[in-house]
Design a protein around this nucleic acid. Structure first.
Lengths: 203, 203
DNA sequence: AAAAAACTTTTTTAGTTCTTATAGTTTTTA
DNA sequence: TAAAAACTATAAGAACTAAAAAAGTTTTTT
């Protein structure tokens, strides 16, 4: 593995664990056992490293979504598989990282925001329209509103004010919210299908 | 009508229309056609006025909720009636007012936050448990998580970044989100009932 | 050739002062 | 007697400064 990839990998680990600001370029070099000189031979600056990680995660997420879309039998299964694959960027991009990115690394934030607004929204709308066509989602839902809700919902689980990690398990909250939104979009036919997939038996 | 009530009424109008900071005590006196001396004869300070309005709205909202709870035949009808009565505090307490309250009038903010955390949460949990008991809400929902979602959902509609008033009608967004969450909590039996109340016909 | 260390520059933060707006009080006027 | 006007005190915000930290560069050492 080449040096650039090693740096990116280690940086990603550290940034997610401790935040973007807390990890200095000195820290990063020390952790890698290399000098700052070598670090700066590969990358022009810290912002560039953060940009690259952002793009890398987005691309991974994008490919993951496309794969799931292709393999799922229907819109509901698509969402259910996605929930289970949830080591997603939204899990990793926790509130602290998002906050610091917004404030100090606006280039990366723009990349991320752009992704959310364009690709992700497109992906979600795709799923909504697929579900409506399949008769699994209510045909009277307002796609513009519900797609925004779905994007928002993904981040609510990471909101530590609302769901402090002392009282809530993030993975569980995330799953609960996903299912709640999924049921909310569904027709009765869709509702039956979710129950079948989840092996839930309503009295 | 006595002078104090007149002042509170006018203040409420102006604060909701223009924000808490924008309306000065001079503005308020001028609008009322009274002097500041008279104004300060009734109230000690601006904070007090804002506190009183906050408490007043909360009490009105509280009574409204209790009335609906009593009159509704079931948990779902309770929510549907509530949606229709939605000239609620959450509609009026828009983001700007909330923001200013948090920042400049922390006393009122504490009152409001306290209300949200205690009374409103209790009310929502009541409805959740009622619905579960009636077999209308899924019995596998996590009440702690979903009650927080319901409180959050009420404010999302007022989020101008997410739903700019240029593109979205606040009342419509609010209604859409409420219904989405209601469907999401419901069992198939509940789902049928919502459709009956709303006269929706799923193909 | 690359790590380590030393260095310079830039950015961030914390603390200070200055200004302005307005809350709240007092005086004047009708 | 209460409105209008004039006044004072206060608190938020802007602008500035100093200190600290960290980014980024260069030099020294192994």
């Amino acid at each position: 593995m080449n040096i650039s990839n090693q740096i990116i990998g280690k940086a990603q680990d550290l940034f997610f664990k401790y935040g973007l600001k807390s990890i200095t370029m000195d820290d990063l070099a020390r952790e890698l056992g290399i000098s700052k000189k070598t670090l700066y031979a590969s990358f022009n600056n810290k912002q560039e490293i953060i940009n690259i990680i952002t793009v890398k995660l987005i691309e991974e997420h994008e490919q993951n979504c496309e794969k799931i879309e292709r393999e799922a039998d229907d819109a509901i299964q698509e969402v259910l598989i996605y929930i289970n694959s949830l080591k997603s960027i939204f899990q990793q991009f926790n509130y602290k990282v998002i906050f610091e990115m917004k404030r100090y690394y606006s280039e990366s934030w723009e990349i991320f925001k752009n992704y959310k607004n364009e690709f992700l929204t497109k992906r979600i709308k795709n799923n909504l329209n697929r579900g409506i066509k399949e008769g699994l989602y209510r045909n009277n839902i307002n796609v513009e509103i519900i797609s925004k809700l779905r994007i928002e919902q993904m981040q609510i689980a990471s909101n530590a004010t609302l769901f402090p990690s002392s009282n809530f398990n993030k993975k569980e909250v995330s799953r609960e919210l996903f299912l709640q939104v999924l049921y909310g979009m569904s027709t009765i036919k869709g509702h039956y299908l979710i129950n079948k997939y989840l092996e839930v038996n309503e009295a």
